[in-house]
Amino acid sequence: MLTVLLAIGILVLLSLIFGAILGYANVRFHVEGDPIVDQIDAILPQTQCGQCGHPGCRPYAEAISNGEAINHCPPGGQATIQALADLLDVEAIPLDGDHGTETAKRVAVIREDECIGCTKCIQACPVDAILGAAKQMHTVIADECTGCDLCVEPCPVDCIDMVEVGVTAKTWTWNKPQGIAETSLNIIATDRQAEVVH
């Protein structure tokens, strides 16, 4: 009897101690916010374009964490969908065409001689990448432009073009090799042509 009581006593004591430790740890190492939202937000391209139907990337990240589909982000494209699928351990689905299609990277360019200085685009720009003042010509800071298209709509004189960012020698990247060619399948290694001859 005593052994049983002793065992129970010890177990109760232990559970109290561990409970206290856990309770303390919960307070001491409390994590503010929702880390999964941060992780999703980090994957999203931060164009703040609103094509997903949310006012910015973070709200969409929150929506995803609440179960919205991961394929509503055209600027991120398939790569973002893949990354989100990996993170959330869901299946990567193709981009939802209702929200737009994946395009090459673009920046807004204002045809400056046509600008009437209405400041509408400045108010629309989510990243403050348009410079100008009322009745003064506006211009886009190309490096800061995320290509979100939000400034195109409000322009009363349609003087904003979305221009594709071309490839320069600095931004050029190597192509992926073609891979194993169909015709070479029946060639064995020793058949290959002569190497550098001297």
Binding site: Q46, C57, D128, A129, T173
Partner: peptide, 26 residues
Amino acid sequence: HSKSSIREARESNVKADLAKQRFEAR
């Protein structure tokens, strides 16, 4: 090819961070 893809991804990450900062600042 892999190196340049990774570099590109890094650069776009940096840009995204910058855009996020600017958006949040706004």
